[in-house]
């Protein structure tokens, strides 16, 4: 019998030391996974100051109130998902403390916290052709004039539902994808990148 449950990324069979070593030097995009980040789905009423103030006290940031916006503070990132729903992400293995903190601060309120850590993984795409590749399978306008840092969107990449946001420089992107679609997305990206010099995989 095994004594410990081993945490395993859904991309464990794709992101191998051999695959990293085989990365093309002039790759059009570079993929980096950030596995095991704590993920919490938070529901509540954004018009209730008791809710927003208490959440701010725990997260250290105000929940983004505008549709398709995102806020960062330290390890914490809060994505707007819907008018009463946010995706709060924290550091690896920090989700239980975060939920405990939220539950304590929001005790008695009409809210919900759900640990969805095991449901998602996060990847970062960078490189000169990151936007070109994504636009082959995503119908949003990802140009910085339309999709700038601070914005996020839930949409489709190929057939996979994703949560995407541009990173600080507007050239790289962060994608949160369901665990069960991560392998599909990796293969889709590899294929879509062939014409741009292939996809590198990094730590």
């Amino acid at each position: 019998m095994s004594e410990a449950i081993r945490q395993e990324s859904p991309l464990v069979e794709r992101i191998t030391s051999g695959r990293k070593a085989a990365s093309p030097s002039d790759a059009g995009i570079t993929l980096r996974e950030r596995p095991f980040l704590g993920c919490v789905n938070l529901r509540g009423n954004p018009d209730d100051p008791d809710f927003t103030d208490a959440v701010k006290g725990v997260l250290g940031l105000a929940l983004p109130s505008g549709p398709n916006t995102v806020a960062d503070s330290g390890d914490i990132t809060a994505f707007w998902l819907a008018p009463t729903e946010w995706f709060v992400r924290t550091g690896a293995n920090a989700e239980r403390d975060l939920i405990a903190g939220l539950e304590e601060a929001l005790a008695g309120q009409h809210i919900a916290t759900n640990d969805v850590t095991g449901n998602f993984t996060t990847v970062e795409l960078s490189g000169p052709h990151a936007r070109d590749v994504l636009e082959k399978g995503c119908t949003l306008d990802l140009h910085p004039r339309a999709f700038a840092p601070g914005q996020c969107a839930q949409t489709l990449l190929g057939h996979a539902g994703i949560l995407i946001r541009p990173l600080a420089d507007g050239q790289a992107f962060e994608i949160v994808v369901r665990r069960s679609f991560a392998d599909y997305m990796f293969i889709w990206l590899e294929d879509a990148t062939v014409e741009y010099g292939g996809m590198a995989v990094s730590d």
Binding site: P67, N68, A82, T139, L140, A153, Q154, T155, L156
Partner: peptide, 10 residues
């Protein structure tokens, strides 16, 4: 009404 214009496939 929240996210703006998107394609029908969504």
């Amino acid at each position: 009404p929240w996210c703006g214009w998107r394609d029908e496939s969504e």
